[in-house]
Design a protein around this nucleic acid. Structure first.
Length: 483
RNA sequence: GGCCCCGUAGCCUAGUGGUAAGGCAGAGGUCUGCAAAACCUCGAUCCGGCGGUUCGAAUCCGCCCGGGGCCUCCA
């Protein structure tokens, strides 16, 4: 079956084939490290993770590049306010970003190029643009001349004709020939010097414009033409449009073949924004007792091109759905095998489950449809196991299918890690369970139920099975019920 | 104003021409000492509203209502 992606460039679903067979280059717009990423950023990062994991799952060799924007207006402003150099200012946010990536079980990129560490490539790119007549210099700043590139606007399909050339925009500190032009390089100001955001060039000291880093670093890591570029929908214009202009202007070659953009997240039905105070960071949510696995699951559970409404109720639902998957995995592990020569529906279920799962993801990474395939597989396998035992080899096939599917969603191990309890606590639980079993054996159910209540109060849920009692920590409330 | 997206059961989310998939929540049942888990059954006679195209539309077209995004540095 064929893998298809919705390409913003063509506004249509297109079969995906990498430039080099078997090898895929992906560039993802990463965080600007002036604050910790918020939950909306993570929707985008998790789409990247889904893409990254799925292409590897399909057998592609993937080179995944995610940049860190560690110099920009906001960073300079805030570094200035604190009286520190930009590197010192951004350092904790970079660390926080990596901590969060790990907490959400996001597969690391192969490279995380930082803008400040790749200025020479950017300068070279500006030189090429100047040489080719796509850029011009004004007072030490360099601008891209949009009029020099007829195909400008192809990605965003934006009509720039209503913006009048030559108009001076009051809020703009820099002088451009045409309002539509954008800065490739910004001449150094005093403030920039004070926070170490200055690099020397032939045309004077300054710092790179925002769009420039992505063109320079992506081409440095992946070549002048590469397969996939991702980002949030807000980046289509101007950021990605300008990246294309810079890159194609400099090389004369097509820059990116597939552009994938993630729709923005809503929170409780509202736009996420600082003024509403709903721009939660992962840290905020974890401190409120929410589970990273539930957050991961929830953010992956809607198709990336559709609006997703993030709510705390949704987080609870996600947790319950995860519980079902964990119980299923647990059941597979503890299911006693039947006769070797016996038959079961399991191999068939594993096969169709995986096929449906793959077909869903092939269709523009349709994660909700993939989850539907996963849960259908779970229900039907549970039903088959209710009907009777299966040979060990059959059990192994469904275990394998579940593992394969979880390579994409990557929630099972994460959830287990979250459910870990310390050994002393576990020993205490086991001791109480032994007491309870003794009480049950002498049919002293009042005593047995009292112990169960005691354990429940300690956050332990007891289940009696034909193989004896089992227990698990009851997932804690993942946050204030009123939230 | 320009460009674009969305509105599916109580909630969340797939489906985009052939009669609605999955999760959560809910009801009944099987199992259980009782529970829990699992399984079985039930739930949208219908997919914001109205009109149209079609043998046939949630899916295409038009209008209306409601929500959202982008339009120079917000993922």
């Amino acid at each position: 079956m064929a893998l298809r992606f919705y390409n913003t460039l063509t506004r249509s679903l297109q079969e995906f084939h990498p430039v080099e067979p078997g090898i895929v280059g992906i560039y993802a717009c990463g965080p600007t490290v002036y604050q910790l990423p918020h939950i909306g950023n993570y929707r985008t990062f998790l789409l990247n993770d889904l893409l990254h994991r799925y292409l590897q799952w399909k057998g592609y060799r993937v080179k995944f590049v995610m940049n860190l924007t560690d110099v920009d207006d906001r960073i300079i402003e805030q570094a200035l306010a604190r009286g520190v150099a930009i590197d010192e200012f951004t350092e904790p946010f970079i660390r926080g970003f990596f901590d969060d990536q790990q907490a959400l079980n996001i597969r690391p990129a192969d490279v995380y190029p930082r803008a400040t560490r790749h200025v020479s490539e950017m300068v070279t790119l500006v030189e090429r643009l100047l040489e080719r007549g796509h850029a011009y210099l004004v007072d030490g700043s360099v601008y891209f001349a949009i009029s020099s590139l007829p195909q400008y606007g192809r990605l965003s399909r934006i009509d720039l004709s209503h913006m009048r050339a030559g108009e001076r925009v009051a809020s703009d500190r820099y002088e451009k020939e045409d309002v539509r032009d954008f800065a490739l390089w910004k001449a150094a100001r005093d403030e920039d010097r004070r926070v170490g955001a200055v690099w020397p060039t032939a045309w004077g000291d300054g710092r790179p414009g925002w769009h420039l880093e992505c063109s320079a670093m992506s081409m440095a890591e992946l070549g002048e033409s590469f397969d996939i570029h991702t980002g949030g929908e807000d980046l289509i214009f101007p950021h990605h449009e300008d990246e294309i202009a810079q890159s194609e202007g400099a090389t004369g070659r097509p820059f990116v073949r597939f552009w994938l953009h993630v729709k923005h997240l809503l929170i409780n039905g509202e736009k996420m924004s600082k003024s509403l105070g709903n721009d939660y960071t992962l840290r905020d949510l974890l401190q409120q007792g929410h589970s990273a696995t539930a957050i991961r699951y929830l953010l992956l559970s809607a198709h990336y091109r559709k609006e997703l409404n993030f709510t705390f109720d949704g987080l609870e639902d996600a947790r319950a759905a995860l519980r079902r998957l964990l119980d299923f995995q647990d059941r597979l592990e503890r299911s006693p095998p039947g006769d070797e020569g016996g038959d079961s529906a399991l191999p068939d279920l594993a096969r169709t489950g995986l096929a449906d799962f793959e077909a869903a993801l092939d269709d523009d990474l349709n994660a909700p449809a993939a989850l539907a395939a996963l849960f259908t597989f779970v229900r039907e396998t549970n039903a088959a196991l209710d009907r009777g035992t299966a040979p060990a080899a059959h059990l192994e096939q469904v275990r394998h299918a579940l593992r394969r599917m979880d390579e994409i969603f990557a929630v099972l191990d994460l959830a287990r890690a979250e459910g870990q309890v310390d050994a002393r606590f576990a020993a205490w639980v086991e001791e109480r369970l032994a007491q309870r079993q003794a009480a049950r054996a002498r049919r002293d159910f009042a005593r047995a139920d009292a112990i169960r209540a005691e354990l429940s109060a300690a956050g332990v849920l007891v289940e009696d099975t034909p193989q004896g009692p089992r227990w698990r920590r009851e997932a804690p409330r993942t946050g204030p019920a009123s939230a």
